[in-house]
Design a protein around this nucleic acid. Structure first.
Lengths: 254, 254
DNA sequence: CTAACATTGTGTATTCTTTACACAGACTAA
DNA sequence: TTAGTCTGTGTAAAGAATACACAATGTTAG
């Protein structure tokens, strides 16, 4: 079910048997009683084949037949927003220890055709290699973010906002590592940054920068299965990062 | 009414006659029907007397008797989230052209004692000099952000989040000017930054920085009523700012 | 087995940015 | 007229960002 699907609380994540009639009935109820629904939508990014990907499903909603949609669900009355986002993520990907952060609420009156639904967008980053999609309902698929076809609801707008958020956030916070295997080469790291920021970076300066931050640990291992000289594999030292003295205050610039 | 007060849609902003019984009844209805309420809360910052201030009212909620609370209200079914925030702001301050930005949604299950209410926090910045508080219901007052007494609900947490957001945002976006009169001296500008960031800055370097951005216009006027040599008054050139080539991409640092 | 290919690993010079720092001039108040 | 307080200005030194080239290591194709 996608974010805009009104489901009963016991519905399984891959329960797509809830007919459209039911959904519409529930939406009508909400609408007629002047009740605003709340959902979460997860923009789940992955990195594979040197490209940033996003996980989408086909909308079950008739108006958006054949359009792609984010993964989401209504928030249950007994769960926090964050919990709801983790639940959606878990139901869809089977992953639990995942980077997840709230990005923005979207609440325009016209965003859902059948009822008023405010959605809270979450951004999550997962390492595609460490993950097999288990539940393939609704044609769950990874999509390149650079070439996206039309999307359902205002999901394109949400995705764009999350992408911009990611571009900014990745530069000031080491989230990028969540998208890579635990051991990675500097080339992979640079590819990640280049793909997300859509820039070309100087290889030597990139290395210098990361080494000077002193957060990468040499594992002593080398890449395998590359058709050229293998690079060293590094791992990110989260502990060191936590302990690190936080950045200078005062970087006014606009 | 504060953000957590459940009001009927036609209630006037200064209508504090809605009794607590009514509110509780409505909350109980929401609660018993498993409906999640949605509100907006505005963290309205002002700058006066070289200090950052925030606009608060006394909570009408019995549990939080005598505690301070943010300005907010339930979102009407027919209005966007942003509209709701502007409405609250307008109702409270009479101002319309104001800096307003969404910061974060707060939706923990236990945040409201009587019902489940998800709130979307907005940050707004107003120039205290250009504004007279018109509606003084609920002891509407400016408070120093550095010395805050206990607050109702999770409003302290919301305020803190907005303050951190402001500290960060003010360094990369020229919001600070919304807190100052249209014509200001560099001293006032520096005081603003020092107060918000809670740092001491070098006066010469501060000037150099702002002049090098080339966004301040000399008005030709001087300060008046200062007990010392008057400084020049500047105004911020928003047009130039809009046209300005946006900052370099790639500033990885964490 | 060797040549062509692809990618790793490394250092320096130049420019730009940030920081630290001091003194003369303007206006007020007593 | 003097003491007080703030304005306005420049330079030197340290640090960060950029631009740039070549030898070494492994793979693959012939």
């Amino acid at each position: 079910m996608n974010s805009e699907t009104i489901s009963n609380k016991n519905a399984l994540p891959n329960d797509t048997t809830v007919g459209q009639k039911d959904i519409k009935t529930i939406l009508k109820e909400l609408e007629s009683e002047g009740i605003i629904g709340i959902s979460v939508d997860c923009v789940i990014f992955g990195f594979d084949d040197n490209e940033l990907k996003v996980l989408l499903i086909k909308s079950d909603f008739q108006q958006y037949d054949n359009k792609w949609s984010l993964l989401g669900d209504l928030v249950n009355n007994h769960e926090d927003l964050d919990e709801a986002a983790y639940r959606v993520l878990h139901e869809r990907t089977g992953m639990e220890d995942v980077y997840l952060e709230q990005v923005k609420a979207f609440g325009e009156t016209g965003r859902h055709p059948a009822a008023r639904v405010v959605t809270i967008a979450y951004c999550s980053l997962i390492n595609i290699e460490h993950h097999q999609l288990k539940i393939l309902a609704n044609e769950l698929h990874w999509h390149r973010v650079t070439t996206l076809s039309e999307m359902a609801f205002d999901h394109r707008k949400i995705l764009d906002a999350c992408y911009v958020w990611l571009q900014k956030r990745i530069q000031e916070h080491p989230l990028g590592f969540s998208l890579l295997p635990r051991k990675f080469s500097l080339r992979e790291l640079q590819n990640l940054y280049e793909a997300i920021l859509d820039v070309k970076l100087d290889r030597r300066n990139f290395r210098k920068k990361f080494f000077s931050m002193d957060l990468l640990e040499d594992t002593g291992e080398l890449e395998t299965d590359v058709p050229h000289r293998p690079g060293k594999l590094y791992r990110f030292n989260y502990e060191k990062y936590q302990k690190k003295e936080r950045k200078k205050w005062f970087g006014i610039d606009f």
